[in-house]
């Protein structure tokens, strides 16, 4: 004899099963669509790629092995190469640092105007937000290349391009952070007669600064990568050195630059993670 459930519970079970079925169908559709896109894309890729997939896979290690063996043959001449390219690395890092700084400051200012709890005027907030979205959307390459064309070869175009992108990216995160603050200090200052700037300075910034700095550090790491790449397409720094050495096929120099880059990126990665956990570790 089977147990008889009350009617409403039975109905509940039916609904639940229906929802589960629906979910399963959605999931299947999602997986199917994803797989279809991947298969279609790989088909297109295979058709339009210069070399075929199979040949590519078999040749995959040729180039790295060539370069590394060349670097190996260089023997004791290899370490001086690291020193030789160090100034270029510094230029790239400075490019990233400078543009992170500029972007950080601009984002800090714009974020105050993009937060509903700082600006009551809804139109201003939404306009500033759209501006931030636009700054974020512009690919760095486009801006950098146009300015490179106009200014000639130097580091500034990349700095402008990365600063613009950084402003947009950080501005969005900053404004979200500002909107999530505790408003009691702001109210307290306001009741004591503080003006808008004093409220921002003494009630908002102290609360959000650790978060801002940690976002800034993360951005710094991203920007080092970006400025290397922009250097590669012509903006100077270690990226440009790499591009030149690749054209000249100097395996030892290429490996030296790659070693420098990987060391920098990895150490920045660890450093920023360590400092971020120090900065916001307490809140976690």
């Amino acid at each position: 004899m089977s147990t008889v459930l009350p009617v409403h519970l039975e109905q509940l079970e039916v609904n639940l099963k229906k929802m589960a079925r629906q979910r399963a169908i959605y999931t299947l559709i999602g997986i199917g669509a994803t797989a279809a896109v991947v298969i279609f894309g790989i088909g297109v890729a295979n058709e339009y790629n210069a070399g075929s997939f199979q040949r590519g896979i078999t040749n995959f290690f040729d180039y790295p092995v060539d370069m590394i063996s060349e670097a190996w043959e260089a023997g004791w001449n290899f370490p001086p190469l690291l020193v030789k390219h160090f100034p270029e690395l510094l230029a790239t890092i400075n490019m990233a640092l400078f543009s992170t700084f500029i972007g950080f400051v601009c984002a800090m200012v714009l974020a105050c105007f993009a937060s509903h709890n700082m600006i009551r005027n809804k139109a201003v907030v939404s306009v500033v937000r759209r501006i931030l979205d636009l700054l974020r959307s512009f690919p760095e390459l486009v801006i950098a290349m146009v300015f490179l064309y106009l200014m000639g070869k130097n580091l500034l175009p990349a700095v402008i391009a990365i600063s613009i992108h950084t402003t947009g990216a950080l501005g969005k995160l900053f404004s979200e952070a500002i909107e999530n603050i505790d408003t009691k200090p702001v109210d307290g200052l306001q009741s004591a007669g503080a003006n808008w700037f004093q409220r921002v300075r003494f009630a908002v910034f102290p609360q959000v600064m650790p978060l801002f700095l940690s976002y800034g550090l993360l951005r710094m790491e991203i920007n080092v990568r970006a400025s290397t790449i922009l250097g590669f397409v012509g903006a100077g720094g270690i990226g440009e050195a790499l591009s030149t050495m690749i054209q000249w096929r100097y395996g030892d120099e290429i490996i030296a630059i790659i070693v420098l880059l990987v060391l920098t990126i990895t150490s920045l990665d660890y450093l920023s993670e360590y400092m971020r956990s120090r900065l916001i570790g307490d809140n976690k």
Binding site: A45, G51, G56, F60, D62, Y63, R225, T228, L242, I246
Partner: peptide, 19 residues
Amino acid sequence: IDVLIWSLIFLRAFGPGLF
């Protein structure tokens, strides 16, 4: 190994293109 270096290595193996 940044996306830059990966793409250089793959560029050698696969040639210019989607892969």
